Amino acid sequence: MSADTVRTWRRRFLERGVDGLYDEPRPGAPRKITDADVERVIAKTLEEKPKNATHWSRKSMAEHSGLSKSTVGRIWRQFQLKPHLADTFKLSTDPLFVEKVYDVVGLYFNPPEGAVVLSVDEKSQIQALDRSQPVLPIMPGMPERRTHDYVRNGLTTLFAAFDVATGEVITALHRRHRAAEFKKFLIRIDKEVPAHLQIHLICDNYGTHKTPAIRTWLAKHPRFQMHFTPTGSSWINQVERWFGFLADQKIRRGAHKNVQALEADIRAWVKDWNEDPKPFIWTKTAEEILDALANFCRRISGAGH
């Protein structure tokens, strides 16, 4: 606080003792909303739900509490309560969660010498969707408009290996999503990565990554080393962020009359990306990740240990 504020409170204490430290009456109309009113709104918001609804609105809380909608809104803003919003979360139950976090994050911060680290996954069931009517282009004062309904024109799956050091991506498109296609993708990686480099693959725990056929192939190619992310923790796999860029920039608002057109667009987008690749900068250490998760578990009710 400012030096003037300190001087004011010291002077009031010298003049009137402890009584001088109480707030003096403020000018203006007396306060109409009591602390009990505020406490009642907060308690209702946190501990109860309205009848026949999943969450409170300003209108329903105002009717229940007898306060105005604007007053309810001010109380919620003051205490950062947002009943209309809901977020998602999932805590991993992997018994080797800590070990896997240290393993994967260690590869991001300290990649082995003479090796390439690839973040690998599949974006499955990418739909070739075409709108039922032509898309209307953006105009001054009017956003791009499209029909809410669409026609499904088939599916494809994108296999991707994201080089965490350079940002370059090795990809392959297949119509099916089986261990056989994953094996073909491993063969492609083996051909494209220089033979003198070891290959560390960061994968999730999907069944196609662990079949006997895949294990047999890996045993015959010892330069490949698999590192599995914890179950339910796709956020730690960098290729997922790359998939997000692809979806935002090419797929989500795209219109494709067939799978071939969709795959051509994906190949073109990947080619442009690899002409100017950008790696992601990983900033969280394993200790920081584990501390953040521990704090979250302490905050949520019923999480136990």
Rank of each mutant, 00 (worst) to 15 (best):
Q125N: 11
N205M: 03
G167H: 14
R131F: 10
F224Y: 07
R131S: 05
T147D: 10
I170L: 09
E144W: 01
E181V: 01
G207W: 02
I126P: 00
T157L: 11
P194F: 12
G207I: 11
R178W: 03
P212S: 04
R152D: 04
K210I: 02
I170T: 15
I214Q: 05
A128E: 04
M139A: 15
R145F: 09
L173D: 03
Y206S: 05
K184P: 00
L218K: 08
T231D: 12
T157S: 15
I202H: 00
R215T: 11
I202K: 01
Q198G: 06
Q127K: 11
G232K: 10
L186N: 05
E181K: 01
H200E: 13
M226G: 01
G154Y: 12
G141T: 09
D149F: 00
T231M: 12
L173G: 01
P143L: 08
D163K: 03
E192L: 05
F228Q: 01
K184L: 00
E181P: 01
E181C: 00
R145I: 10
A213T: 15
Q125R: 09
E192T: 05
E144R: 04
V164L: 00
V169M: 11
C203K: 02
T216N: 14
D190H: 07
I202T: 05
H174Q: 05
G154Q: 04
T208P: 07
A219N: 14
P222T: 08
P134H: 13
R145T: 11
M139G: 14
R131L: 08
P222L: 03
H221D: 13
P143N: 09
Q198H: 07
E168K: 15
E168P: 09
Q225L: 13
M142V: 11
A165M: 14
I187E: 14
H209S: 12
P230L: 06
T166H: 11
E168A: 14
V193I: 10
F185K: 10
F162M: 11
I170M: 08
P140A: 09
T231E: 12
K183V: 06
Q198E: 14
A219R: 07
H196S: 09
V151W: 13
R152Y: 15
Y150C: 03
D163G: 03
F224L: 04
S132A: 08
I126N: 02
L173I: 10
I214A: 12
L158W: 07
G141L: 04
F182A: 00
T208F: 06
I202Y: 02
A172V: 07
G141S: 05
P140Y: 10
N153K: 04
D130G: 08
D190W: 07
Q127E: 09
F182D: 03
D204W: 06
E168R: 15
K183P: 03
A195K: 12
I199D: 01
C203S: 03
E168N: 14
